[in-house]
Amino acid sequence: MLKKVIYILAIVLIFVIIFGERNLNNIQLSKESALHTKTVETQSKANSFSSKLTSGKPVTIVFLGDYVTSDDSLPDGNLNHVALLANWFNKNYPDQVKIINAGMNANTVSHMKKRVQSDVLKHVPDLVVISAGLNDAVGAWKIPVKEYATNYQAIVEAIVATGDTEVVIRTPNPTTSVEENVEMKSYIQASRELTEHEKVYLFDFYQVMADDIHAKNISQLELMQNKLHPNIKGQAYLAEQFKMYFTSELIQP
């Protein structure tokens, strides 16, 4: 009986050793796989907008949007947020950043979709900043939110499909009308959901400005030229918030 017990224990011990070695091999393979994955991610990040900018390489940024983005968004040739950001980049990264303003008055995402190749992709940008929603939600067109989301997604996918180009979705500013802000909610949410895509970031300017208004940090009426569009002060405010976003969220040292 004792010999039988010893025999069984010996067999069990052999199985423990064999399965132990197999498990050890699996653990080692997992570590190698994890290391390989990290290496691939590091190589991918080496071509990112942030890494190229901080390493001194030239980068191109395209701002795609509507009237708020366009060069003619302010009277008398005053600088809007895109031009102010261009000056800021040139000061901090001299002769390194090329900024292209592809904003156009009265544009919806349907209009932007039609010109994404000619006005955006042909410049081979490292980063594309897109802002849409005002005209779609509360402008003259009243684009259904489902159509808005579909066209916006098509724009984003066309850009990221090119390879190394990254995208920032900027939500539009709140209007001075409570009713129109309610109308915009579903469009804002659709914009936020687009950032679930790889290489797509969110600058939720709508929320930033709304929080400042509710906290009474700013007076919205002092920042608007009409119920939809920022004035000179509003554009400067947008530029400052953009700088904070770039330096805290997108540009990594």
Rank of each mutant, 00 (worst) to 15 (best):
L134S: 12
Y206N: 12
G139Y: 03
Q189T: 15
V208W: 03
K146N: 12
Q220R: 07
I155N: 01
I169M: 15
R192F: 12
T171R: 00
A161E: 13
P172K: 03
G133A: 06
E198I: 02
H123M: 00
A161W: 02
V168A: 10
H197L: 15
N135P: 07
F205V: 08
T171C: 05
L202P: 01
M184T: 05
Y201D: 05
L194G: 04
Q117L: 13
L194M: 15
Q220Y: 01
A149C: 05
L121E: 00
D204L: 04
K146Y: 05
K122C: 08
R192A: 06
K122L: 11
N151T: 01
S118H: 10
Q153S: 11
S186W: 02
N181G: 03
P144N: 06
N151K: 14
V168R: 09
P174N: 03
V116Q: 07
E180G: 02
K122D: 01
V138S: 02
E179K: 15
F205A: 07
R170V: 14
F203H: 12
V156T: 07
N181H: 03
S131P: 01
N173W: 06
K122N: 06
P125S: 03
R192Y: 03
L221G: 11
T195I: 01
V208A: 06
Q153E: 11
V156Q: 05
P174Y: 03
A137D: 04
E183N: 13
P174Q: 04
T195V: 03
V178L: 03
P174V: 10
Y148D: 00
V178E: 01
D119P: 05
V128N: 02
D204E: 05
R115H: 07
V160S: 09
G133N: 09
L121Q: 00
R192C: 10
E147L: 09
V167Q: 08
V182F: 05
K199C: 08
E166C: 07
F205W: 04
Y206D: 03
S191P: 08
Y206V: 02
Q117C: 06
H214L: 14
D211W: 03
I169G: 11
Y152F: 11
E166K: 10
E222S: 13
R170E: 09
K114E: 13
V167M: 09
L121T: 10
Q189G: 08
E193S: 13
E196N: 11
R192K: 15
D204K: 04
I213E: 11
I213Y: 11
G139P: 00
L127S: 08
T195H: 09
F205T: 15
E166W: 05
L121H: 00
Y201F: 15
K146H: 13
V156F: 07
R115Q: 12
A215K: 14
Q220G: 06
N217T: 09
N181M: 00
A154N: 15
E193K: 15
L127Q: 06
V182H: 06
H214I: 13
V145P: 11
V178N: 01
L194C: 00
K199W: 07
D204H: 01
R115K: 14
G163D: 08
S177P: 04
A190F: 08
A215Y: 11
A154Q: 11
A215S: 14
P125W: 04
Q220W: 09
K199F: 08
P125A: 01
K122F: 12
S219G: 07
L202W: 09
D212N: 13
K216T: 13
W141M: 12
I188N: 13
T171K: 02
V129M: 02
S219V: 14
V124E: 09
